[in-house]
Amino acid sequence: MRNKKFIWFTSVVVVLYFATISVFYQLPFKTGTTVFQDVDQSHWAAYDIEYMYDQGLMKGRDETVFNFYPEAVMTRAELVALMLRVDGADLAKLDQTATVKYTDIPSGHWSIPVLAEAEKRNLIPFKDVAQGKFQPDKPVTRGELSQGVVQSLHLQYSTLIDGIQPVNDIGGNLYEPAISTMLTNKYAKGYEDNTFRPNENASRATVASLFAKALRENRPETKTDANAKKKGGNQ
């Protein structure tokens, strides 16, 4: 009889405990999502986004880490910052007194130390900066993103080969060599209409996807698995 009372009492305590948790504690993201509450597990780039987060290379844009904004664009300055992280730089230790040659970056802009370090490492991917302007807040295009991946991972350029989905809109583009390299290595692919759309803005999800695929294959020491390229989405 005493054992039955003890079991009944224990059961009541357990029920009350979990009821209290459900009332007063709420997870920072909804069930069925990744670490980011706005990236569902079924999102085409979910695996790649979580990979970039796990590697400490990309995070959310809110005060907390739980919103990724996968369809938002990435700016040119943000891409260079990502390239530096991929190259092993600690952004917290950059020279805050550094200066840059670009005339359109206001004094005190957060990107100045980043761009100064990127200049030293030859990690400025944009072909138009010779004109003296950087346009730090301009959205990154898919062509520029391809250049950023190739340059930050120090990949060898390669031309399109047989068996790779052809694209008909990169001929003569400033970033054609980088795009061809991404396509040949299957780090990216074109759309169903055989276009790559190199001048179209790249979403944060696409940025995560292209970098993740290249990193898994070229940085085998990172956390990954043999089927990583197959698991991740592709654009």
Rank of each mutant, 00 (worst) to 15 (best):
M1N: 11
M1V: 08
R2C: 00
N3K: 15
K5N: 08
K5D: 10
I7F: 11
W8I: 15
F9N: 11
T10H: 10
V12D: 00
Y17C: 14
T20I: 07
I21P: 00
S22R: 13
V23P: 05
K30G: 08
T31S: 13
T31M: 10
G32I: 05
F36Q: 09
D38L: 01
D40V: 12
W44N: 01
Y47T: 15
I49M: 01
I49W: 05
I49L: 03
E50C: 04
G56H: 10
T64F: 02
T64K: 10
T75H: 02
A77I: 05
E78Y: 03
E78A: 05
L79F: 07
L79N: 04
A81K: 11
L82R: 08
R85V: 06
G88P: 02
A89L: 01
A89C: 06
D90T: 01
A92C: 03
L94C: 03
T99N: 09
Y102F: 15
Y102H: 05
P106A: 15
P106L: 13
G108Y: 11
G108F: 09
H109C: 07
H109A: 14
I112Y: 00
P113Y: 01
A116S: 09
E119N: 11
R121H: 04
L123D: 09
F126M: 12
D128C: 06
A130M: 14
A130S: 14
G132L: 03
Q135P: 02
D137C: 01
L145I: 02
L145F: 02
S146L: 02
S146M: 02
G148R: 01
G148N: 04
V149G: 08
S152G: 09
L153E: 08
L153R: 06
H154Y: 02
H154W: 00
L155W: 04
Q156Y: 09
S158Q: 15
L160A: 00
P166L: 03
V167P: 00
N168Y: 13
D169P: 03
G171A: 11
G172I: 09
G172S: 09
L174D: 15
L174V: 09
L174Y: 15
A178D: 09
S180G: 10
S180F: 00
Y187A: 04
K189L: 07
G190K: 01
Y191P: 01
F196I: 05
R197H: 09
R197F: 08
N201G: 10
R204L: 00
A205G: 15
S209R: 04
F211W: 03
A212P: 00
K213V: 00
L215Q: 11
R216G: 11
E217H: 07
E217C: 02
P220F: 06
P220D: 05
K223H: 12
K223G: 03
A226R: 12
K230F: 13
K230W: 13
N234M: 14
Q235K: 14
Q235G: 14
